[in-house]
Amino acid sequence: MNKLISLELKRNSLKSYHISVVITTVIMLGFLYLLAAIPKMDPADTDAELFMSYNFIIGLSNVVCMAIFSIMSAVMASKFIVEEYTGKKAILLFSYPIERKKILEAKILTVFSYTAFSMIVCGGFILTVFLGTERLFPLCSDTISLGMIWDSILSLLCYSFIAALLGVISLWFGFMKKSISVTIVASCIIVSVICQIMGMSLFYRPVIISTLAATLIIAVLAWSNLHYQVKRMEV
């Protein structure tokens, strides 16, 4: 499997995705400071109280990050998978003496791992820089505690895996229609729904865990159906 993944990486350059991750990291860092500064912009606004809690602003930042990374995951899946199983490219892919399901698994694992890992690195960097500066020059009136840091890390891990799993679910829609645009549009729609649920629950941990479990189940079903489709595919 490692060999198949390394071949995927040789065939498809990751450079553009690395650049996207760096740009996302810079923008999200700025976004996090903006969230922390909201109460200071208009102290009379009572709704801004929400932004005085680290849990809220880090949770919100993680959700936005999840939306960005899940759409990036869909773009990557459409390039690595949907495009390669469409038209004449599929002839090349099916001409290798390797089980079709193994090649598909390598592709999905590549996209899944890259999405989850890059979001963890991006979120981890943002969190470290933000909490580092907050210790020295606090913008937020909340206090930094070990429990809060642990909650933030846990939320980052959950959202990173949700982002990667949403990529697999969007892939299923795109694969059904063999369309790059369907993959990306499906991703945008799904991620909008998930973000609404998270926003309404104010990043309540059981909701995050339940969402992770639900996306995991749906992604596993999508994965097994993709296996079936690829096995039956004729080109």
Binding site: K88, K89, I91, L92, S95, Y96, P97, I98, E99
Partner: peptide, 17 residues
Amino acid sequence: DRSEILRHTGSLIETPI
């Protein structure tokens, strides 16, 4: 025996990709 055939066969089908 699809995989084994592919291992021992070289092919050029339609316009090569």
